[in-house]
């Protein structure tokens, strides 16, 4: 089976890997790099559990071939906390009880990060629309929306709690 060289950056670390043409970015993240915080739900683009950021954009890693990510910067849930301090979104999810089983949480948080980076002051409807590709089977949607709403911009473009 032919192998292809793949260079990409995940959570700030540069990797050079060998992959098959048919492998997805999700396979690389979970199986090559053992970053299992990125979940697999449907494997067909419906649930959003596998969402990661690629060059800052929310994408579903089950819908992207690994080789499509050549040279890209990937952020997974493991890369969000800085020096042991949780990201404001992570704190907000904890404080608002926005996590039940937690399976959808990495995807929810990363999609929300893309939203806040684009639109620092989203309305409740903006949040609902943006998160509509992320399913929570524990159906704690209102808490999730509360959590994202509680995070507001601080000085200098960063986010903090309201």
């Amino acid at each position: 089976m032919k192998k292809y060289k793949l260079c990409l950056t995940v959570n700030g670390i540069d990797y050079m890997l060998e992959v098959n043409a048919g492998e997805t970015l999700q396979d690389v993240i979970r199986d090559h790099l053992n970053l299992t915080g990125t979940k697999t739900g449907c494997d067909s683009g419906a649930c959003g559990a596998c969402t990661v950021l690629m060059d800052g954009m929310a994408i579903k890693s089950c819908l992207v071939l690994a080789l499509q990510a050549e040279g890209r910067k990937i952020l997974t849930i493991e890369g969000l906390a800085q020096d042991g301090a949780l990201h404001p979104l992570q704190e907000a999810f904890v404080e608002n009880w926005a996590i039940q089983c937690g399976y959808c949480t990495p995807g929810m948080i990363l999609t929300s990060k893309a939203l806040l980076d684009e639109n620092p002051n989203p309305s409740g409807d903006d949040i609902r629309m943006y998160l509509s590709g992320n399913f929570c089977r524990c159906t704690g949607y209102q808490k999730i929306i509360d959590a994202v709403s509680s995070v507001r911009p601080l000085q200098g473009g960063r986010h903090g709690k309201k």
């Binding site: 043409a21 997805t24 683009g45 089950c62 992207v64 071939l65 080789l67 499509q68």
Partner: peptide
């Protein structure tokens, strides 16, 4: 041809498409 992959990748995963070569135009 592979563009964004949003329709083709699921087809590849489910073996509904089995091309010998992918031409990534992205």
């Amino acid at each position: 041809i592979l563009a964004g992959g949003q329709s083709l990748v699921p087809l590849l995963r489910q073996r509904l498409a089995r091309p010998g070569l992918l031409i990534d135009i992205s």
